[in-house]
């Protein structure tokens, strides 16, 4: 798109649905309208800031003669990316509010069930759904991955406030594509079904939801974590949550196969057994919610990156012992 003839007399307004974020050495444009993360030169952030109070011509005129032509080039780039528009008025739109909120006291829950699990699953699920939880992840191992057990678990959450159930089966040997299709047809809350070590590979997309069966076994931890490398989440709700919270751990609870409350299954720290401590009590404890507020600016591995508010922080955090209140993904035992 061509610059307007009178661009020097106009203000350039960055669209509020585009947010520029600076890192230590990089910068990125979060394009929420297109759900894209676009690397940009850091100088562009300064330029856009100046354009909030100066016309394009005023800014170009204030620069040394050798840098002045760059303003037109950068503006062409911003217009071409559809990051903003030229306006006669200095303030055309309002910035997006940075508030984040959700109606749920609990956003997500994660349960691991295998041969070691002898706690009352129904009672735990009742506590989770009583808090209006929207998303449930079930990791099912031995004794729990067969069709009858899965059916029983899904029946337990029928009619609850849950909107989505994700199933991960370590042993998919008893599952056929027909059985998977049938499960999706009868349980509209089912969003993801992933079975490892299945007899045949199969994949089908529903609306919404994905059914996938693979013949290989569940990958090991390191390989699983690589899944998230180079992938970014660019939407405004995620961004505003990431500004203040850790989007993985915020309002999340997990229950280990032995029945212990955790922040997430990948953590070793536990917060009591489900038979001894109510979920409401766990959520009210500052020790449990401590990690919820560890946002990207407090994680040394992320804080210098311009992409920090688009990263899914799916690695266990370790507190630094330097009094800074910061954390790292590095786990000495790995």
């Amino acid at each position: 798109m061509k610059l307007p003839d009178n661009w020097r007399e106009l203000y350039f307004t960055l669209f509020p649905d585009v947010v520029l974020v600076k890192g230590e050495r990089d910068a990125a444009a979060y394009d929420f309208n297109r759900a894209e993360l676009v690397p940009i030169p850091p100088v562009l952030c300064d330029l856009v800031e100046e354009l909030e109070v100066h016309t394009c011509g005023e800014l170009a005129g204030s620069l040394p003669p050798d840098q002045s032509p760059l303003v037109g080039k950068y503006l062409s780039y911003l217009l071409e990316k559809d990051f903003g528009t030229f306006r006669e008025e200095i303030i055309a739109f309002k910035p997006l509010d940075r508030d984040w909120d959700q109606s749920n006291e609990l956003l997500s829950a994660q349960l691991e069930l295998n041969a070691s699990s002898d706690y009352n699953v129904a009672a735990v699920l009742d506590q989770i759904t009583d808090l209006n939880c929207f998303q449930l992840e079930l990791r099912l191992g031995e004794k729990w991955a067969n069709p009858e057990a899965v059916e029983g678990l899904l029946e337990l959450v029928r009619g609850s406030t849950l909107r989505a159930v994700d199933l991960y089966l370590t042993d998919g040997s008893a599952w056929t594509p027909e059985r998977g299709d049938d499960l999706f047809a009868r349980h509209p809350k089912l969003l993801h079904f992933m079975a490892y070590a299945a007899p045949t590979a199969y994949e089908k997309t529903f609306h919404p939801g994905t059914l996938k069966m693979v013949v290989h076994p569940l990958p090991k931890g390191e390989e699983r974590r690589n899944h998230y490398k180079g992938r970014y989440i660019v939407n405004y709700q995620y961004f505003t949550e990431a500004l203040r919270f850790n989007p993985l751990l915020n309002r999340r609870v997990s229950v280990s196969s032995f029945g212990y409350w955790k922040n997430d299954l990948m953590y070793e720290e536990t917060f009591g057994h489900v038979t001894e401590r109510k979920l409401t009590e766990v959520l009210a404890s500052p020790e449990f919610t401590r990690l919820w507020k560890v946002n990207a600016d407090r994680i040394v591995d992320l804080k210098d990156s311009a992409r920090r508010y688009a990263v899914w922080p799916a690695e266990p955090l370790t507190a630094l012992q330097d009094g800074s209140g910061c954390y790292t993904f590095f786990t000495p035992s790995l």
Partner: peptide, 23 residues
């Protein structure tokens, strides 16, 4: 930035990625 020619109803371009919903 570009409504195209003779756009009578903005609903027709609501889903396009060049259409912005701004406060």
């Amino acid at each position: 930035n570009d409504y195209g020619e003779n756009l009578a109803d903005v609903k027709l371009i609501a889903e396009e990625d060049t259409t912005h919903n701004l406060p």
